[in-house]
Computed example of a mutant assay.
Amino acid sequence: MEFSSRIDLDRRSGGRWAALNPLTWLGELSETRYWMYLLLLPSAAMLVAVVLYPTLYGFDLSFRQYRLTRPDLGTGYVGLMHYKRILTDAVFWLSLYNTMIWVTLSIVLEFLLGLLAALALHRNLPGTRVFAVMILLPFFLPNVVAGHMWSLMLDSRMGVINDVLVNIGLLDSYKAWFVSPVTAMGTAIIVEAWHSFPFFTLLILAGLKGIPQDLYKAAQIDGASGFSQLRLITLPMLKTVIAAAVILRVIGLVNSPDLLLILTGGGPGRSTQVLSLYAFQTAYRDFNFGYGGALAVVMFLILMIFAWAYIRISKVNRD
């Protein structure tokens, strides 16, 4: 009698412990519709910690007085003071203009070089694989490495590019490319295009692989030239890929001041001063994090407006 009662007690205790067992609880939860939310919870937490919180903190910082060189001013809220200052800041408007020049010319040059390289690689001619590796090499280099490498190659005293141009007669003497306001921006754009055009090459090449070859065969039968096939078939079929690549590169160019920081530092004068470099120098050279945060927020809004407008114009969302 005592033995049987002990067995019943153990069964009841085992049932209670099973209900409290985390594995049992998870097993029961996996049979409900709440299981997917539990699986998404780690990713959502990472997204909040890595993306949402820093973004909101940056917006909050733009409304504060936060100058490490003036601790007497405190860190309180100042409302729209920084944004009002932006409206009358001549350096901001010059940086905005330089950013438009920097982004537009870089994107055009990168797209043209990327398109030519992708079309060449798509033909699968002998030596294509070696050529593909050579094209991708610049993209593998960090911006810091590429910037210092080109800075040495374009050096006005011992740069190899100056030496070649002088020897072939294109220059009379060595030229300081990043000292003159006339050549500084153009030279930096060429360096940026050399470094980043493989990004367009990869995306366009992937898009070319998805175009049906029957379209080109039909066009050849109708007597369409190679340029007509490019204009009427290739580019329209690559519209989605090109739009995505342009948006990503614009975001990258606007947000990355490292190459210009290495090559020119925003000079000479302010001829190569762009918004990202101005925000970076305001925050980490002048230690004015409040105003630097406001500049970053303005850049964020400009990029959001650009992305929305470009998608609407290209009608990608209707395809």
Rank of each mutant, 00 (worst) to 15 (best):
G114F: 03
L52I: 15
I190L: 14
M100H: 00
A224M: 08
A219S: 13
P181T: 07
V316E: 12
Y83C: 11
R11V: 14
G269D: 12
W177C: 06
P212Q: 11
A90R: 15
T240Q: 13
F92G: 06
P212L: 12
L248S: 05
S225Q: 04
L52Q: 06
S173Y: 04
M158E: 12
H148I: 15
T183I: 03
A219G: 07
W17T: 12
G290L: 02
N124H: 14
L119D: 08
G223V: 07
S13E: 07
R123F: 10
N21Y: 05
P54M: 06
Y34S: 11
T55I: 05
D222G: 09
G293Y: 02
A118E: 04
T88E: 14
E2Y: 07
A19L: 15
S156R: 12
I311V: 15
R285M: 09
V254S: 05
L119G: 10
V50F: 11
D163I: 08
L303P: 01
L170I: 04
I242K: 01
I233N: 10
Y97E: 13
A176P: 01
P42R: 06
F197R: 02
I135H: 09
I313P: 00
A218D: 02
V241P: 06
D172V: 03
G266P: 07
F300I: 01
A120R: 06
S13K: 10
Y77S: 09
F140I: 13
I7D: 01
V50G: 00
M149I: 15
L96Q: 04
R33D: 10
A188N: 05
P181G: 08
L41W: 05
A279M: 13
S43R: 00
L61D: 08
L125V: 13
P198Y: 10
K217Q: 11
M304C: 10
L39G: 01
V133P: 00
Q229F: 03
G114D: 01
Y83K: 09
M237E: 12
S228Q: 15
V254G: 02
R285D: 05
L109H: 01
V241C: 07
A117G: 04
Q281R: 14
G269R: 09
A206T: 14
A244K: 00
N98E: 09
S13A: 12
N162I: 03
G223R: 09
F178N: 07
D222P: 09
R249D: 10
G15A: 13
I204A: 12
F227G: 02
W102A: 05
L232A: 13
I204S: 10
V316P: 01
V164Q: 05
V166H: 06
W177G: 05
A118M: 04
L203G: 07
D319S: 13
V182D: 14
M304L: 15
F300W: 08
A279R: 05
S276Q: 01
L116I: 11
G14L: 06
S151M: 15
P268F: 07
D163C: 02
A294E: 03
Y174V: 02
V78S: 08
G114W: 02
A118T: 03
Y97T: 13
T128S: 12
T272N: 09
G290C: 01
V50D: 00
Y77F: 14
G15T: 06
L125C: 02
P198Q: 07
T24Q: 08
